[in-house]
Simulated scan of single mutants.
Amino acid sequence: MSIEQHYEQQLDTTALLEQVRTHYPEGADLYQLAPLDQLHIGGIKASERLLRHLDPSQPLSVLDIGSGAGGLMRQAALRGIEMIGLDITHQLNRLNQGLNHCLNTPVNTEILTADAHHLPFADNSMDRVLFQHSLLNMPDDTAVLTECRRILKPGGQLIMHEVLEGPHPEKMQYPVPWAETPQQSHLLSQTAFEQRLHDCGFNQVQLEDWSEDALEWRRRQLNKETQGKAVRAPLSPVLILGPRFKAMGQNLVKNLEAGAIRVMEVTASTCF
């Protein structure tokens, strides 16, 4: 199964957008959309932490690779930060565009359907490149990171919120939101990831472990998801990933608890 099929097989974009409009006829706020469009571990709070690296007063060219349903982009847009979104899954891009107009303060963002292994941008054209739980779906990480290095300007920055292999990868359980099987998951160990960044031309590599916060957040989400229907939010990752999300969510907790995965913030720079 391709990664596009993984995300599209349960997704009816037209029906989903109609459901959002029905629940929020006056428009939803960021927190109301978050169960649907902030599919990464940590949700909207994790995106807030990531966005602290971007200064709205600076006119930066920013690319969000693996933009998915677009929660990070909308959150940034309301702070005055413009991003270009890129995702290989066209139906997620359609959903992203549609959700822009379901927000109570509608935004207009640029979204491209393209493959991160072959970025459609000129050399030295971007100030910042962001990933949020997206490199883990890319089979040739060296090609992707080399492309990022190519399009970043001298002094540009790579900013990532990613899942890496933990100290006990043998305890990994599937399915997880980004993969139903190991063949769809491309996790690197921290050591291998740092080496890969250096090999692809990045320096000043810094990593911050968010795993404990991520586990606490995922436990809270799992508790909400297992409560009665009357207290559940009207929007949910189930609307994108289908009923398989129940097992995916449970396995995230198990994998974090077992040390099969770690959740990291990563920053790296290009040389002047």
Rank of each mutant, 00 (worst) to 15 (best):
R196C: 11
F193W: 00
Q9L: 05
P120E: 01
Q204V: 08
L16R: 06
K246I: 15
L11K: 07
T13M: 08
T181S: 15
G228L: 09
E8A: 12
L11D: 04
R79F: 07
T226K: 10
T146N: 09
H118D: 11
L51E: 07
D213R: 11
I111V: 15
V253L: 01
E170A: 12
I151S: 08
T267L: 05
E194H: 12
K171Y: 08
K229M: 11
A233M: 05
H23C: 14
A258F: 09
E82W: 08
I240R: 03
R49D: 14
Q183H: 13
L30C: 04
S189F: 08
E26L: 09
L235Y: 08
M172T: 06
N93E: 01
N251V: 04
F193E: 01
A69S: 07
P182Q: 05
Y31D: 13
H118A: 12
F131I: 02
M126S: 06
E82A: 15
D213Q: 15
T14G: 04
K45R: 13
E147I: 10
A260Q: 01
T109D: 12
V253T: 05
N93K: 04
Y24V: 04
Q206N: 14
L239D: 07
K224Y: 01
L63S: 04
S269K: 11
D55C: 09
H101V: 07
N124Y: 10
R52D: 11
A260K: 02
N108W: 00
V238R: 14
H90G: 11
E110Y: 07
S236F: 11
H6D: 07
Y31N: 12
V205T: 09
L112W: 08
I81G: 01
G228W: 00
L36E: 00
H198E: 13
S57I: 11
D213P: 04
Q10M: 10
M172V: 09
V238H: 13
D127T: 00
G43V: 00
R262M: 12
Q38S: 13
V266C: 13
E180Q: 14
Q10E: 15
L103R: 06
P35G: 00
V238D: 11
Q184A: 12
Q206R: 15
E170Y: 05
L103I: 03
K246E: 15
D141T: 14
H133R: 04
G166E: 02
E8Q: 14
